[in-house]
Design a protein around this nucleic acid. Sequence first.
DNA 1: TTGAAAGCGCTAACAC
DNA 2: GTGTTAGCGCTTTCAA
Lengths: 326, 326
Amino acid sequence: MRPTMKDVALAAGVALKTVSRVVNGEPGVNPATAERVREAIERLGYSRNESARVLRRGRTATVGLVIEDVADPFYAGLSRAVEEVTIVEGCLLLSGSSGEKPARERELVRTFCARRVDGLIVVPAGDDHSYLRPELDAGTPAVFADRPPGPGLDVDTVLSDNAGGAMEAVGHLLAHGHRRIAMLGDHPSIFTAAERLAGYRSALGQLFDPRLVAMRAPTPETVRTDLERMLALDSPPTALFTGNGRLTVTALRALGGRRMGLIGFDDFELADLLSPGVTVVAQDPAGMGRVAAELLFRRLSGDGGPSEHVQLPVRLIPRGSGELSP
Amino acid sequence: MRPTMKDVALAAGVALKTVSRVVNGEPGVNPATAERVREAIERLGYSRNESARVLRRGRTATVGLVIEDVADPFYAGLSRAVEEVTIVEGCLLLSGSSGEKPARERELVRTFCARRVDGLIVVPAGDDHSYLRPELDAGTPAVFADRPPGPGLDVDTVLSDNAGGAMEAVGHLLAHGHRRIAMLGDHPSIFTAAERLAGYRSALGQLFDPRLVAMRAPTPETVRTDLERMLALDSPPTALFTGNGRLTVTALRALGGRRMGLIGFDDFELADLLSPGVTVVAQDPAGMGRVAAELLFRRLSGDGGPSEHVQLPVRLIPRGSGELSP
DNA sequence: TTGAAAGCGCTAACAC
DNA sequence: GTGTTAGCGCTTTCAA
């Protein structure tokens, strides 16, 4: 069907290896011969079969990326940054969304490994990564982003300063006079959610009140219910800290214009256009992707040093909602 | 390094072919033998080398997706839908962002083809796709989404009803009493931008005024400049039609709370939370991705019928900004 | 039910 | 400079 090197060699009247040399830009080919080969390539519409090349060389020039959901702006930004670095390094990106399901994460990683990706960047959904052991031992490096791997796996990680960001957010609300500060977070089995809860708690100290905390997978209904319950308390919250971008938006809808101190973890588009503007603790998804990818490519180029653990700073952006008084 | 079928065969005391049969679930293997093989596979941590398999079989079980930018919510939604279908079909997704650069689109397609993807889904950046001819001839089907291919290429397409949506938007503003309706759109060399401009123009008829139209790659500065120019006219616009999601958001910022009729093409998160809510013509990015992917897989399973051209409906969602009177 | 041999398209190692 | 040979790990074909 498609022409092969052999076909090109035949057409150009040279040996197969000469075609290979031309295709790969190897030195030591007579310019005239090379020209003849190039002409045959053009004429036959030849393009190198990468599968064969990969099989022979052992490197696929492909990186696998497992995230939670490409349709989530945070992970979309991360993906784009990973892709950017990957392209520069001459590699391609295989990617897949786990949808927060450990089984799917595992399935994706397995599939990527069967395709012999050179390396992996994983935003884990589960917390048992023992299945990665053989792959790591076989020399496929992995970098974990956003969340660390389960116990027993010593790999590079790139995480945001989740606890610090939450502390800063709550501290900011405290500084503006709030004493009853509620938190809506994702299920604490998710690393980032647990870290942010820890930061929230430590910033509140004595003021901590478990009735002002709701941690579970958010839907419009659960958020509404949780908020209503809290607002019906004897001393209701005057401010709210939301544990991720989706929660912030859902909470804004549930609040329906009710005036209340609010700081959300994660920045989101249009946060500045709402009134009041929404104060957020901004992460840097693109930075996270870039750093993770660069770390991976350093490993791929032979860096065998001890595993690195990068913590990315977060940034509080005051826009109004976090500066309301109680 | 990694164990091969040969290693497994040796360990299990069978021939290589028997291992192959077990790995691929082919019938006609003695259960006891199969068990022995499985045990050896487990013990050695064997996993099939897909590159070798691909080389032999000719099919990669991989689909290539070229979009404009994963970090754009529209394309992120499309990607996720494509991924969904792809996974169900047992394939993997290679994807890349063209960043609206024809050269990069071409490069990505080339690279994907060199990896022998089974099929392609392309949101084109350029309008010359003659380079795809050899790939199509070699039997790699392609589906174009969001925008059609350049002239001379007869492939399946999945497009939104861009002109119809624009007409509906402008008609809606007219019905609410507006007569001076401006349009901000992307550069008309982009298919969707041109189509939406055509719809705008045809809905306006005699009311069309070229001074109320600005079509160019949007940046905060250009949008601000264009709007200021229009608003300084003797009879300034009382309403605005924006040609895509990014433009809508940028225009909202530039307007800075100024009360003005507004309908944007593309829905966006939080459009309902602004005040007034932003009326939009919503596309269905996930539907587009799904339909394109399904079309591709129908081709892959042998459907050789004439090329299909799906047009997806759009939906006007009134939220307030499009219902303001002049 | 099992196995031996050939070969997918390419690159590495070595002649010439 | 150029060509020959071997073999990457698998599936296909055919034989036992």
